[in-house]
Write a protein that binds this DNA or RNA. Sequence first.
DNA 1: TATGATAAGCGACAGGTTGTCACATTTTTG
DNA 2: CAAAAATGTGACAACCTGTCGCTTATCATA
Lengths: 191, 191
Amino acid sequence: MEAATREFSRRPFSEASINQIIKDAGIPRGSFYMYFQDKEDLFRYLMKGYVDQLLLVLEELLIREQGDIFEALLALYDYVQRKQDARQLGEIGAMAAIVGCNSGLQKTTILDMVEPGVVLERLKKLINPELLDLRQEGDLNDILALLLLVAGPLIYNGVQCRRDEAAQAHLRSVMEILKHGMARKSCPAAT
Amino acid sequence: MEAATREFSRRPFSEASINQIIKDAGIPRGSFYMYFQDKEDLFRYLMKGYVDQLLLVLEELLIREQGDIFEALLALYDYVQRKQDARQLGEIGAMAAIVGCNSGLQKTTILDMVEPGVVLERLKKLINPELLDLRQEGDLNDILALLLLVAGPLIYNGVQCRRDEAAQAHLRSVMEILKHGMARKSCPAAT
DNA sequence: TATGATAAGCGACAGGTTGTCACATTTTTG
DNA sequence: CAAAAATGTGACAACCTGTCGCTTATCATA
């Protein structure tokens, strides 16, 4: 796992080499194929663990924010940036390194790693729908998917850049847009 | 170009083989490297052409809709679905096939193909900012990037699925959310 | 038109990759 | 404790890519 994380952090997925990983790990070729079908299988396994950790944090924040998904996502960004500042990102940092490891041509988003349904189901349980305050009964799944689609890259950005005020402001402004756009009642007065 | 389109439509980028392309095209290996640096270079070149075509359509629609980017994006979805129904998608269909060509692990979004700045600059010239009616002066670039981030996958979905009412409704509802969320004045009454 | 310089075309090749498979070794089980 | 089942192992075939010395075409100029 350590060797795989190292390799995937160094090169984009398509260029990562099983050869390198097994050489680094000091295990023979055949053993690798005993446990993983191929490079993608290994990558998915690795990611699943890291994504689970991030999801765990988000769930905790969601509870602390009493089901407010907007606040939870903003808090997740903060969390990630604080850890980043303290250079304590650990496992999540490894994930970011791996996921961020793209050739510029192909980006791998966090959500693509896990079956999308799973993430959504886990989050739905903790969300207070009243706080979402939906204008019309859009499918909660669709709404959440939209939120994560938008928040994902922005939070990922937070992992990459140390304390980037602009990025944080951007996330906040985007969240505002989504919150207002989804709101049932009339908008509060403009700033 | 034809051989390349065929190959990229068949396999995900990472699995596509230059060997296959040159065999199919009947050109020698060296000739390929005379014109393209590598597989990615070829892919980008191919995509640039197709994306330009789609952007051209969007620009036309933006003019027809008098600078309303929301309506233009909805119209783009319609356009793409009509063409799809009439099996006239041609070049754009080829692009969709290629871009859609993903391993499930790595998705290549249309926007990743062209320098993002270029798309934004071209669209900004045609957008009527008054129609966007921004609540606060968020950077127009950021707003547009958000719009395209969200609309991109949905429209791409329109190219893939023939006449998918649900997808269209989803796009419309997402556009509503963004439009309301960005609006300066109070929201119109709920539906 | 002849000529030489410059550009383009070509494919064998080296060095890399992956997944497999027959065999060695360890573990389990009757 | 021996046979059977599971696991470990690395040489191997089949593939891939980018290069490089060589051949061929093009084109400006004498």
